[in-house]
C-alpha cells in the first residue's frame, strides 16, 4: 500500500478522529486526577473501546475495497449472530438459521460484482420466499409464524440494512470528489456514532421530557434536539471533505441521519425490553455488544444510501 494512494481528504478526517480520541482520553485522565473519589471505570472502558473500534474500522476502510467488504460482511455476521442468540429460536429451525447465515456471503458477493438490482431484492424477496420453504420442509407447525417473522426481521436489519454501508463502495466513482465510497462510509459512520454520543450527552445535561417513555425512558426531547443540531453541525464540517453533497443536502443528510439513528436505537431498545435484557452481550467491554453499536446504523445506512443514490448516482 502506498501512502499516496489514500485520498488526502480521508487522511485529514481520520487524523481528526484520532485527535478527538486523544482529547477524550486526556479529559478522562484529568477527571480521574481531579475527582479521585468518583468512579470513571465505565467512561474509561468506553473510550478504550472507541480507540479499538476506530483503529479497526479506519484500517478496514482505507486499505482497499475488498478488505472493506470482508470487514463489513463480518460486522453483519457478528450482529446477526448476536440477534439470533438473543431471541428465542426453535430447535427445529437450526437449518433455517444456517441458510440465513449463508445469505451474508451471497449478499456481499452481489455488492462485490456491483449488481445493484440483485443486491436490493435478494433478501427482501428471495430470502423472504426461501426461508418459509425450508421451514415447511422441516414441518414444525408450532410457533411457525413467530419464527418465520423473527428470523427474516433479523436478516433485514443486520444483513440487508447494514450491507447498504458496503454498497456505498460499489457506487460509480465520479470526478466530483476524491474520497469516493470510503468517504461516504466514513461520513455516515462518523455522523451516526457521534449522533449517538451527542444525544446521550445533551440528554444527560438537559434531559427532561422522554420521547418514548415506555421504550426508552432515558431518551429525551432535549437530547434528541441537541443531537440533531450537533449532527447537522458536524455534517457541515465533514461533507466538503468526504462527500459530493450540496449545502442543502448536507443539511438534509445531517437531519435524516440524526433522526434515523434515534429510531434505529430505540428499535433495538424495544426488542430488548420485550426480551427482558439490558445489554445484548459483552463482546465490546463497557459497551454492551455489537448490536448496541450497530443498532443506529441499521436505520441510517439504508436511508442515507437511498438519499445519495437517488440524488447523486
Amino acid at each position: 500500500m502506498r501512502y499516496s494512494s489514500i485520498p488526502y481528504e480521508l487522511v485529514v478526517v481520520i487524523a481528526g478522529i484520532f485527535v478527538t480520541l486523544v482529547l477524550a482520553s486526556l479529559v478522562t485522565f484529568i477527571l480521574k486526577k481531579s475527582k479521585p473519589s468518583e468512579d470513571f471505570t465505565e467512561l474509561t472502558l468506553r473510550i478504550k473501546s472507541w480507540w479499538m473500534m476506530a483503529a479497526v474500522f479506519t484500517f478496514a476502510i482505507i486499505i482497499n475495497r475488498n478488505i472493506s467488504l470482508i470487514f463489513l460482511a463480518f460486522l453483519s455476521f457478528l450482529a446477526l449472530k448476536e440477534f439470533y442468540s438473543l431471541i428465542p429460536t426453535r430447535r427445529a429451525d437450526r437449518r433455517v438459521l444456517f441458510w440465513a447465515y449463508l445469505s451474508i456471503p451471497v449478499q456481499f458477493f452481489w455488492i462485490y460484482i456491483g449488481w445493484y438490482g440483485m443486491f436490493i431484492i435478494f433478501i427482501p424477496v428471495y430470502m423472504f420466499l426461501l426461508l418459509p420453504i425450508q421451514m415447511i420442509l422441516i414441518g414444525e407447525n408450532k410457533g411457525f409464524l413467530n419464527s418465520v417473522g423473527s428470523i427474516h426481521w433479523g436478516l433485514m436489519l443486520m444483513v440487508f440494512g447494514l450491507s447498504h454501508l458496503a454498497f456505498l463502495l460499489a457506487l460509480p466513482t465520479g470526478d466530483s470528489h476524491g474520497a469516493g465510497g470510503a468517504g461516504l462510509i466514513l461520513y455516515l459512520v462518523i455522523l451516526t456514532q457521534c449522533n449517538d454520543v451527542a444525544q446521550y450527552i445533551w440528554g444527560k445535561l438537559f434531559g427532561r421530557h422522554a420521547v418514548v417513555p415506555k421504550v426508552s425512558p432515558n431518551k429525551t426531547w432535549q437530547g434528541l434536539i441537541g443531537g440533531i443540531l450537533t449532527t447537522i453541525g458536524l455534517a457541515f464540517l465533514l461533507a466538503p471533505l468526504l462527500t459530493p453533497l450540496s449545502l442543502r443536502d448536507t443539511f438534509l443528510t445531517g437531519l435524516i441521519i440524526s433522526i434515523a439513528g434515534f429510531i434505529g436505537d430505540v428499535n433495538i431498545s424495544a426488542l430488548k425490553r420485550d426480551l427482558g435484557i439490558k445489554d445484548s452481550g459483552t463482546v465490546i467491554p463497557g459497551h454492551g455488544g455489537v448490536l448496541d453499536r450497530v443498532d443506529s446504523l441499521t436505520y441510517t445506512s439504508p436511508i442515507f444510501f437511498h438519499f445519495v443514490h437517488y440524488f447523486y448516482y
Binding site: 449472530k81 430447535r91 437450526r94 444456517f98
Partner: peptide, 15 residues
C-alpha cells in the same frame, strides 16, 4: 447444544 447438538454435523453459530 444449540450450535452443535448430539447427532448432527451441521454447525450453526450461536454465542
Amino acid at each position: 447444544g444449540k450450535a452443535l447438538p448430539k447427532g448432527t454435523f451441521l454447525l450453526v453459530p450461536f454465542f
